[in-house]
Design a protein around this nucleic acid. Structure first.
Length: 574
RNA sequence: GAAUCAGUAGCUCAGCUGGUAGAGCACAUCCCUUUUAAGGAUGGGGUCCUGAGUUCGAUCCUCAGCUGAUUCACCA
């Protein structure tokens, strides 16, 4: 059935595949093809005087081809980069039989095929380091044409740039857009850097459940799923906080986890339904201490992946060099709006919001209004790494109350480039206070807040056994990677971002058509006329169809024997 | 969820005031013994996103839908 929809180019490649087989060449050979160098290694280290790289073995994908009479140039691309290869007829065909060059290389290979070559490195007259090929092996035949992106003097032609196609077919994006690969290499570098930092301090990397009977640790809507054997609903985690704290209760003094979290919310260039966080919990520490750790860790990350503390984002330079600015929530609001709100009650805050043109409504409590003012009037302007500390209690049900400021909690967020990057607090370890906070959340939930947390009795039980004072931290890895790689959207830093499913066109197979008595050769025609289902086909008057069929046959000079009107009528009746 | 823009060949894009479509690359055939987004000649390739409407006639105008992008909103 697939074969019916092949483009001309695809058909030609399949034909080439058959011809290769006929020549006794396996287009998908078994066995390894050991490589002894890489493209960049050659380009960086080849020295004609030293005559090094005199026997290289290299494999990769054919990206360009320029065929002459009996000598050709092509470029092959491996994981590291591209290099030109020079293929001469009499080198790869040492005997009388020139099939390998004339037929196989020139006609049956295509851009996109994966080949292995052996030969020596030299410099062409044009001054380009190339491989003079002595032996060439097809390793994998490509059946679909690759988007061909060309480049000259830094200028890119015919770039493969449609985001939809790039994300849906990321492998193509990776093949033809080399800078994309860089982003993901950096992503792994960032994660490794963080892991190295935390391991050096002997915190234990752990794993906690993705499938949870109760979700918690964040304010978000979950995905739900179902376990058949247990006959119970499960949730995909929105955070791993409550499990990591149970481990602190259990006696570990420093645990962390890189976790995929899932939130059933809107998608945007800053939100993907599944995203990666690293969460860290350290016993006998508080949020002040945690701020220092974050500074040190992210400075190290910047240096590890960039070689410098300066990161260029759009037209700005962001410096991760310590120390960073620290404001309390009230201070930063005063700095950016001129209003000193620390002593204000809900009514006063409401009018301040009005003066500032910040939209608020009656349902919002004090904490929510403050958060709204901060989000609109301060956060977007905080480009350099800045810590904001001491948040309103209402918004932080898992953070401990501030040791000296009533109504606040010991919490900080790190803002970089106008976006929240980390969230941390001195963890609430008073089980009775925690129960009270959960109850408050339940009330919010009853009022219709879909993101309110649920009461986790099992977690409370753990706290009741006693949890040491603990500092906790969460960092959004995707957003960190966005900053470190100057990426405009989260989709650029996730290999396979969530995409709306493509609408599948319903299609019946040939057997369903032939069952009506339609001859095989006409099924094709019917399909091409746009009737892909039996239903859509039968939903016509016989006269009209008969007309259309004959017309199509004539117009496209198919030379088929036209069916009679009676036959068509019969098809529809079957 | 809202506004704006877009959807035409495998890829990147043109297409005037409505008259059934073009270019470059890719592909095919041929020419050329080291080219540089190779060059030259010839050729094949299209459900102009889908569906209605207006019209003698729609890729183009109108409406609805689908998909995407951007900005905003929502969202730790």
């Amino acid at each position: 059935m697939e074969d019916k929809h092949l483009s001309e180019q695809e058909a030609i490649r399949r034909e080439a595949l058959n011809e290769l087989r006929a020549l006794g060449i396996d287009p998908y050979p078994a066995g390894s093809f050991p490589v002894n160098t890489t493209t960049t290694e050659i380009l960086e280290n080849f020295n004609p005087k030293k005559e090094n790289f005199s026997d290289v073995s290299l494999a990769g994908r054919i990206m360009t081809r320029r065929i002459m009479g009996n000598a050709s140039f092509a470029e092959i691309q491996d994981e590291k980069g591209r290099i030109q290869i020079y293929v001469r007829r009499d080198d790869i065909c040492t005997g009388e039989d020139k099939t390998m060059y004339n037929t196989v290389f020139k006609k049956l290979l295509d851009i996109g095929d994966i080949i292995g070559v052996r030969g020596f490195v030299f410099v062409t007259k044009m001054g380009e380091t190339s491989i003079h090929v002595k032996e060439l092996v097809l390793l994998s035949k490509s059946l679909r044409p690759l988007p061909v992106v060309k480049e000259k003097e830094g200028k890119v032609y015919d770039s493969f740039s449609d985001p939809d196609q790039r994300y849906r077919q990321r492998y193509l994006d990776l093949i033809v857009n080399p800078h994309v690969k860089e982003v993901f290499i950096k992503r792994t570098g960032i994660i490794n850097s963080i892991r190295g930092f935390l391991d050096a301090r002997e915190y234990l990397e752990v794993e906690t459940p993705v499938l949870q009977p109760l979700y918690g640790g964040a304010a978000a809507k979950p995905f739900t799923t179902y376990h058949n054997k247990l006959d119970t609903r499960l949730y995909l985690r929105i955070a791993n906080e409550l499990y990591l704290k149970r481990l602190i209760v259990g006696g570990f003094e420093g645990v962390y986890e890189f976790s995929k979290d899932f939130r059933n919310e809107g998608m945007s260039r800053f939100h993907n339904p599944e995203f990666t966080m690293v969460e860290l919990y350290v016993a006998y520490r508080d949020y002040i201490w945690m701020m220092d750790l974050v500074e040190e860790m992210l400075e190290k990350v910047a240096v590890d992946v960039q070689g410098t503390t300066e990161v260029r984002v759009d037209d700005k330079v962001i410096s991760f060099k310590r120390p960073w600015k620290r404001y309390t929530m009230y201070e930063v609001i005063e700095e950016y709006t001129g209003f000193e709100i620390s002593q204000m009650d809900e009514q006063q805050l409401f009018s301040v919001a009005g003066d500032l043109g910040v939209e608020v409504d009656k349902t919002m409590g004090k904490g929510k209004i403050i958060d709204e003012i901060f989000g609109k009037k301060c956060e977007p302007y905080l480009v350099q790494p800045t810590f904001i500390t001491d948040y309103p209690l209402e918004m932080s049900p898992l953070a401990r109350k501030h040791r000296s400021k009533p109504g606040l909690v010991e919490r900080f967020e790190l803002i970089v480039n106008g976006k929240e990057l980390c969230n941390a607090f001195s963890e609430l370890n008073d089980p009775l206070d925690q129960r009270e906070r959960f109850i408050q959340q339940l009330k919010l939930g009853e009022r219709g807040d879909e993101e309110a947390m649920v009461l986790d009795e099992d977690f409370l039980k753990a706290l009741e056994f006693g949890m040491p004072p603990t500092a906790g931290l969460g960092i959004g890895i995707d957003r960190l990677v966005m900053i470190m790689t100057n990426s405009a959207s989260i989709q650029e830093v996730i290999f396979f971002p969530q995409m709306r499913p493509l609408k599948k066109e319903k299609e019946d197979d040939n057997a369903q058509f032939t069952a009506l008595g339609i001859p095989e050769e006409w099924v094709d025609v019917i399909r091409k006329m746009g009737y892909t289902t039996v239903e859509s086909f039968k939903n016509n008057k016989p006269g009209k169809l008969h007309n259309e069929l004959c017309g199509y046959n004539k117009k496209n000079k198919l030379g088929l024997q036209n069916p009679s009107p009676e036959e068509v009528k019969k098809w529809l009746e079957n």
